[in-house]
Design a binder for these strands. Structure first.
Length: 844
RNA sequence: GGGCGCUUAGCUCAGCUGGCUAGAGCAUCUCGUUUACACCGAGAGGGUCGGGGGUUCGAGUCCCUCAGCGCCCACCA
């Protein structure tokens, strides 16, 4: 019997349904591909671990929207679809965050001690992980929670150690004394790309320095100079090159070797530079090339060491102030200029970086890998160059290559406490043992006393293993076999280097395979003025608040439509509200259809079209179905969404539903299209579509339905129907322009060469005119193939006339131009002629 | 100092490999208790596609150049 319509509210209220729907999905088990009834191929996404601070911001919301869109699409297409969620320990970020909390409590990690501090961090992480899980659910993410991973899980920690040991054995990891980026606040090294630059106003001091004047922004470092550099072509200082000079700096004695190097710009400053190998990366390179002594002056706390003589114990800034005063007193300051330079700062805490020499662990990116004939860098470059991995948008290829080309050895040891301990042990006789775990190390130690390296690994080291460590590596698991390489890596372009590049590098090395086929890089979300959203500016939009106000589906649409890979996007409340309106429209379209059909049921086959409108809407739907599928296959999410939006609101609702009120007897077509439309919409707006879907009283959830194939359709029907549409619009225009109220039905006689009587009647109803079959004694209007006699006297506006005339003149000129006739394709010429005829007709 | 991108209606943006009278949403104005939806419907106004030059039968689309804005990279001390 006819299924009775379950009550649908007049307006869709997302908050009434969303949580329940998510629970139904999650309990269904279909987030787990093992429960999917499919023989399809595997499609996997590894969820990028959200930041451990525990607050979902719009960037995460956007990422989840794009990822869930891909995942739901592939699941509907019948692929064995897996989305692995997870969190990482985010070493420096998390430690910094917890240290801030401790500071507010008036304590610090040193006072707590390593163990207590780590307990505290673990508590914090547990809390934020929970928050993140709930927020991820709020976004509707259909990820497989049963496979959730965390970088500190046993398996993943084992993966980290295994990778380290392998690289060590291949000579790709080594300990070395080199210059590193040091953050005095974190008291840890940083990788090159973890250093940011900030322009600042500085002073450039010109110091009388033996026979020279040298310019520097950091006078205090001159205390540890061991060399002086000049340009080889600089005649002024030629005589000194090769000499070693004793220099007195306000009483502090240094010994410097003078050398020539072409890297030196003779036109900058005085053309002479004092070289401080221990505290400048450039100077360190000079020291390597010219065998200079390296004297460390500044320690890891940013304090001047014994080598600084009487300045020992002062901070860098204090030392600078006093030393400059001393130099002034000794008449050794030649001049001081204002200067803009880039200050290097820590990307997590903004503290000024102190370059210094230190004993650290490095990944050697340029060294040939035994048995592979290539370096890590080459492997990672080729993976993209050979087309094995596709980066979207393509412009990031170049940026990727450039970064790889300039990549230096990667410093992976960190002195922070929160992280994977380096799997290296030292014995009482200073033997170095690299092992999977302590037990193995003990075995190797033969009873000698062991001490594990105090340092932890760069968080990006463990993250670089993410796509396969989350699938069980180093065990050869079924999951690893089935789901790796993953399909798409979706993330922000801001972490292309930090993460994406390193995943490629490590996966190519360890698995001799790519981590993913496609990299989809989304842009940054900005406010309406294009500014970055931030707490301090107070312009941030809280996604959870938007979900409360407008629903998750609306938020997702606002993030998907209008966004292109790699391009930043502006978001603001009005936009989200607009999509809330749209979701409501979809709801009401469904409500209208359900309340008008005799029986709510599924329609398997495309119903027979009875009228022109039927043929048109079916053709149009098939066209949209096809385009949406193509766009999604090509990662053009926005285009796919726009296509659906216009069809739904413009064609289906504004035209076909209105026609359905007049022509009647369209149950099957309405249900057929609605049913499929809901599937097409599901990846975009999973919640509202699943709620509406329940009206079909299916056992099966929408989320595992089958993506519709588009049937063949005739293009010509679409243009035929536009004849009818134009007639209706023209009649409405005539009425509006003549201030005829919509409630009045003026008499109208229409003669058409194309449209049959039925359609003229339909057009008349839609345009709200009274169709008569007697010619009316007024001037005729031509609308395409129809001649309309309606008792109004609407004229084309002057502007309209002018535009049309302009068009006629230029088009006639074009058509009489032989070059155009000879060169343009026949179709273009034909279309141009047709359009000209139409316009002329209009002007009559 | 290199490299990349952007500039289309008042606002936010589409416009693929050059060929519909440049489009959409929001905003504005007019009208509207039509069997869903005012989170709605019908209609209107609004653009010399940043400036200049070039290639072409044809340029918002390709090339050059200038201007403005933004981003990334880089060891000018």
């Amino acid at each position: 019997m006819a299924k009775k319509l379950e009550e649908m509210d007049k307006a869709y209220e997302p908050s009434k349904y969303e949580d329940d729907i998510y629970k139904i999905w999650e309990e269904s088990g279909f987030f787990n591909p093992d429960n999917l009834d499919t023989k399809g191929k595997a499609f996997t996404i590894s969820m990028p671990p959200p930041n451990a601070t525990g607050i979902l911001h719009l960037g995460h919301a956007a990422a989840l929207a794009y990822e869930d869109l891909m995942i739901r699409y592939r699941r509907l297409k019948g692929d064995k679809t897996l989305w692995v969620p997870g969190t990482d320990h985010a070493a420096i970020a998390t430690q910094t965050k917890v240290e801030k909390i401790l500071a507010e409590e008036g304590t610090n990690r040193q006072k707590l001690g390593r163990d207590k501090f780590l307990t505290r961090v673990k508590e914090f992480v547990a809390g934020s992980q929970n928050t993140i899980r709930n927020q991820t659910r709020k976004m509707g993410a259909s990820c497989d929670w049963s496979r959730e991973r965390y970088t500190f899980d046993d398996g993943l920690s084992q993966a980290v150690n295994e990778a380290f040991v392998r690289m060590y054995n291949d000579g790709l990891i080594e300990k070395d004394y080199r210059i590193v980026n040091w953050c005095p606040r974190c008291e840890s090294t940083l990788a090159d790309d973890e250093v940011e630059h900030q322009e600042q106003d500085a002073k450039l001091y010109y110091i009388k320095y033996g026979p020279f004047v040298v310019a520097t922004t950091r006078p205090e470092t001159k205390l540890a100079d061991t060399g002086v550099a000049v340009n080889p072509s600089d005649k002024r200082y030629k005589e000194y090159v090769g000499q070693t000079l004793d220099v007195d700096l306000a009483g502090h004695q240094i010994k410097v070797k003078i050398f020539a190097d072409k890297e030196l710009d003779k036109d900058f400053g005085s053309g002479v530079v004092g070289v401080t190998p221990a505290h400048s990366a450039t100077d360190y390179d000079f020291a390597q090339r010219h065998s200079l002594e390296v004297i460390k002056l500044i320690n890891e706390q940013g304090i001047i060491m014994k080598t600084g003589g009487k300045y020992e114990g002062k901070t860098v800034l204090e030392a600078r102030e006093v030393f400059v005063k001393d130099l002034e007193a000794a008449d050794q300051i030649d001049k001081v200029e204002d200067f803009k330079n880039n200050l290097s700062i820590c990307y997590r805490c903004d503290t000024a970086i102190e370059p210094l020499t230190s004993d650290q662990w490095f990944v050697r990116v340029n060294k040939e890998i035994p048995g592979r004939g290539k370096s890590l860098k080459t492997l990672a470059t080729l993976a993209v160059k050979d087309g094995d991995i596709k980066i979207l948008p393509e412009k990031f290829n170049k940026i990727y290559y450039h970064w790889m080309d300039n990549l230096h050895d990667w410093c992976i040891s960190r002195q922070i406490w929160w992280g994977h301990r380096i799997p290296v042990w030292y014995t009482e006789d200073n033997e170095v043992i690299v092992a999977q775990n302590e037990a193995e190390a003990q075995e190797k130690a033969n009873g000698k006393k062991l001490r594990q390296d105090e340092d932890t690994l760069d968080t990006w080291f463990s993250s670089s293993l993410w796509t396969f460590s989350t699938l069980g590596w180093p065990e050869q698991t079924e999951d690893l076999k089935n789901f790796h390489p993953t399909g798409v890596m979706e993330t922000g372009y801001d972490i292309l280097f930090f993460w994406v590049a390193r995943m490629i590098l490590m996966t190519e090395y360890i698995l001799k395979d790519k981590p993913f086929e496609t990299v989809y890089l989304h842009g940054m979300i900005r406010d309406k003025e294009g500014k970055k959203m931030s707490k301090s500016l107070g312009n941030g939009i809280n996604p959870l608040e938007m979900i409360d106000n407008f629903g998750t589906d609306a938020l997702r649409l606002s993030l998907i439509i209008g966004s292109a890979p790699g391009a930043d996007m502006r978001l603001y409340e009005e936009k989200i509200a607009g999509y809330r309106n749209f979701v409501n429209k979809l709801w009401n379209i469904s409500r209208f259809i359900f309340s008008n059909v005799d029986e709510i049921k599924r329609i398997d086959k495309q119903p027979k079209a009875k009228t022109l409108a039927d043929r048109w809407i079916l053709a149009k739907f098939n066209q949209v179905n096809q385009r949406v599928t193509e766009h999604l296959d090509n990662h053009k999410f926005s285009e796919a969404g726009v296509e659906l939006y216009h069809f739904t609101w413009g064609d289906f609702a504004d035209w076909y539903l209105e026609i359905a009120k007049i022509e009647k007897d369209k149950d099957e077509i309405l249900l057929y299209i609605l049913e499929r439309l809901l599937i097409l919409y599901h990846p975009f707006t999973p919640f509202v579509t699943e709620v509406i879907w329940k009206q079909f009283n299916n056992d099966k959830l929408l989320m595992i339905e089958k993506w519709p194939d588009s049937a063949k359709f005739e293009d010509s029907v679409i243009s035929d129907f536009s004849e009818l549409k134009e007639l209706v619009v023209a009649l409405r225009n005539l009425k509006a322009a003549n201030k005829i109220s919509p409630t009045e039905f003026p008499d109208c006689f229409i003669a058409s060469k194309v449209l049959e009587k039925d359609y003229l009647e339909l057009a008349a109803k839609m345009a709200r005119v009274n169709l008569v079959d007697k010619k009316i004694n007024v001037e005729a209007k031509l609308i395409n193939s129809s001649t309309v006699y309606v008792d109004l006297s609407k004229e084309l506006s002057d502007k309209e006339k002018q535009d049309l005339k302009k068009y006629i003149i230029s088009t006639e000129a074009k058509l009489t131009n032989n070059e155009f006739i000879n060169n343009a394709p026949a179709k273009v010429i034909e279309d141009t002629k047709k359009r000209l005829a139409e316009v002329k007709n209009k002007l009559k």
